[in-house]
Amino acid sequence: MQLGYFLFMLALALAVTILIRGMSPLRAHAAEEGHDHEHEHEHDHEHDRKHKHKLGHSHDTGVFSIDYYAYISAIRDWNPMFKVFFSLAVLIAVIAINSLYVSLFVLITMGFLTVVRGRIPLHQYISTLTIPIVFVLVGSLTIALSFARQPLGQYNLHLGFFYIYTSDADLLRMVNLMAKAMAAVSALFMMTLSTPSGEIISVMRKVHVPRLIVELMNMIYRYIFVIMETNRKMHDSAESRLGYVDYRTSVKSFSGTASNLLVVSLKKANAYYDALISRGYNGELLFLEREKKMDREQTVLGVVYFLCIVVLFAVQKAALFG
């Protein structure tokens, strides 16, 4: 165990060094645009301060904060294909290997990548991580705890008619699962908090997802913002006329807004199609995008990262059996 712990820290240090090392070409670039970023960051901090006490699923900061941070991420300039595949590969590796060491390693390094290299505010990152926390807690407790009429297991709690019990093995299983799930989520966030959806869709096009699906995704992504905006306006105008003054009224306004939203959306769909046709749409939306070259250094580092994972896995095996 001692050796395992040592190697874990070593691998972590190695990975962090690698990630910092890879930053150097980016620094120069960031300096050029520094002015712009600075401005945006100031705004963010102000934004954060207002909501500092709130963690998790808050709607006040806007539903689309993830989309917003994807656009201002400092690692947005990385090749999207690389980011998508790297994050998917890490995701699958974490789930397939299912070892506590690897999960912790991925959780820490992916968080590092997003927060330090991507310069996503730590508070925002943590509150995004806590969105699925309800699921993690409820789901994992269900797995760890069992109910019975007689006292069973290593720990039990008597509650009148029945006992809640658990054992070390079950608890370990729960911790393992929680770490695994959070690591997987952090790998996914590395991608979503640095790659705007448009780029992800373009990666899907490049790997030959059926054209109709890509087309639909492109349109849905854009329509979401249009409908969201329409909904906000409807909500505001209802609110200004005391539409949400008490519970009964707000139920009425909510359902009324929702049904009206569909009608307005359908009308807009027709108008948008006409607009598309008038610009020569023939079944494929093609967007100009900035070419982001595949960085050879990053590829090598990605491979090294996987080697780290494999080494950690081997270390844990050794620690268990040796």
């Binding site: 109709l212 087309e215 639909l216 349109m219 849905i220 329509y223 409908i227 959306s265 359908l266 807009k268 769909a269 027709n270 948008y272 199609y273 598309l276 079944g283």
Partner: peptide, 8 residues
């Protein structure tokens, strides 16, 4: 396609 997308 436009209507389907807006439904989504």
């Amino acid at each position: 396609i436009s209507i389907i997308a807006i439904a989504g």
